[in-house]
Design a protein around this nucleic acid. Structure first.
Lengths: 270, 270
DNA sequence: TCGATCGATACCCTAAAGATATGGACATCG
DNA sequence: CGATGTCCATATCTTTAGGGTATCGATCGA
């Protein structure tokens, strides 16, 4: 388990020094631990030269499976600690404004079900899916296909068309609608939870994003429910050909909690 | 992880001495390890008196979640080792005679798909579901509802009515059909993979079972495809009101292997 | 009340895991 | 083309986590 943690760090960084710093240990013990892990498993996980490190195919497998195992262990601990608390609660992870306007009615409907427990809202721009995987949250409101739902169960709640938010006076603000092709060359945001490979300017919250848009530094394609949050100084226009975003309620695949099931039921479209 | 293994052993045995023996360590270090685990988690997992040990509600949670985490870790290692082998193979776990007569055609159809790899058959009376969970097998032929499919994905293949296998001359052999009520008072087998709580005489393979039936020591309710394996000296009769058994093909929920998907497709009813 | 059972405590000892110092390969730059 | 910096491996020492034996204290049954 410790060695798995070490391996995942190295596999993600592809750099022993950086990985060791992230793990708060020195580099030599890390090198040795990985070597021992490889010997014990009888498998070469990393090809190293003195210049670069990269994963073998077996290493790719262990990276994916190992992350799952680490999440399962972390979730086991957190759920146990939560179970020991006298007052049961549900933790719902969500992005500010990312609920598509559904949150109020979901919470009301859940609160009205018999045996409902208090619901804590954990606001987080990124990491929401990961919070459910590792037990920090019971449920999350996510977006499909923008979020990676691997390892989670989910129900669709609402599909939203996309709009682009522009600074006033932007060349595209003159149009009634915008197409994705119009946006080529524009700087777009990159949320912390984006799938690997997505490029763009790193952003961490909506206020910061709106600020940057009004400064003319970027434009952003967002679900139409963002309308209410577009400040004066920015405008929105429908994007005709963007992939629609579906708001989903997601929970751990191996949740057996009656509370979680009741919350999912309460969040079903009505 | 080590501590999780220790805790699961104690939680299953509800006895520190037996658990220590199972783990091949002495009892005092085990007591200490559990105590440390509880302190670090800040949760009481076990209520101990000098006479008996039992789980707290939080301990129940950790038992369930911990098993999952241990399985995930074991699977990570095994799948990595498998990925390092030069010749890819699929491992299919099944019970001798437990395929409902489908095995031959499934294997033929899979072998005919492009890119098919060799399939190893792992015969095992019990543990087949667990073999998939912890990575020893890629796929298993199981029975629903007799097997616990928690943590696995599965597709239904075939639903079979149940028959009872009796020694020749048994009082029920005189009837054309039998009902479950007729069987009250009879000794029934208990397979190693049975859900906890199922009682009966422990049995580990079909030959042994048939032997015991012919000796008049027990009778067994089995899927009708067992007909071909009933030896002279025993007879079978339909059980009118037994829950039908569905043969399913099961695989790990987080399998992304193209081979596994192809095999499942090849096993679909036709 | 005595003995058997079972978990906890006390104490020791080995080996795993971490740190520091340093070596060797290799790319980059003046 | 050699100096320099980067990066992983090796060598060596130290700490501590993890395991063993002996024994205690509580509790149940005979």
């Amino acid at each position: 388990m410790r060695e798995l943690r070490y391996f995942v760090a190295v596999a993600e960084e592809l750099h022993f020094g950086r990985a060791a710093r992230r793990l708060n240990i020195a580099q030599p013990p890390l090198s040795r631990a990985i070597r021992l892990l490889e010997r014990r498993m009888g498998v070469t996980l990393l090809e190293r030269t003195s210049r670069e490190v990269h994963l073998t195919p077996a290493g790719e497998v262990l990276l994916a499976e190992g992350r799952g195992a680490l999440d399962a262990a972390a979730a086991a601990v957190r759920r146990t600690q939560r179970a020991a608390e006298t007052t049961r609660r549900l933790v719902l992870a969500l992005k500010p404004g990312g609920d598509g306007g559904l949150l109020r009615s979901i919470l009301d409907r859940y609160a009205a079900t018999p045996g409902a427990v208090p619901v804590d809202l954990a606001f987080s721009a990124g990491e929401r899916a990961q919070m459910v995987r590792d037990g920090r949250a019971d449920l999350a409101l996510l977006h499909r296909p923008q979020n990676d739902l691997t390892g989670l169960d989910s129900d669709d709640l609402l599909t939203q068309d996309q709009v682009v938010v522009l600074p006033e006076g932007h060349r595209l603000a003159a149009q009634d609608t915008v197409s994705m092709a119009d946006l080529s060359g524009e700087t777009l945001p990159r949320w912390p939870e984006a799938r690997p490979g997505v490029t763009g300017y790193p952003i961490s919250d909506t206020n910061q994003l709106m600020q940057l848009i009004m400064l003319g530094r970027m434009v952003a394609v967002l679900p139409e429910s963002i309308r209410d949050r577009v400040p004066p100084g920015a405008v929105w226009r429908p994007v005709t050909d963007a992939v629609p975003a579906t708001v989903v309620i997601a929970w751990s695949r191996d949740s057996t909690s009656r509370q979680v099931a009741a919350f999912v039921a309460a969040s079903a479209p009505h």
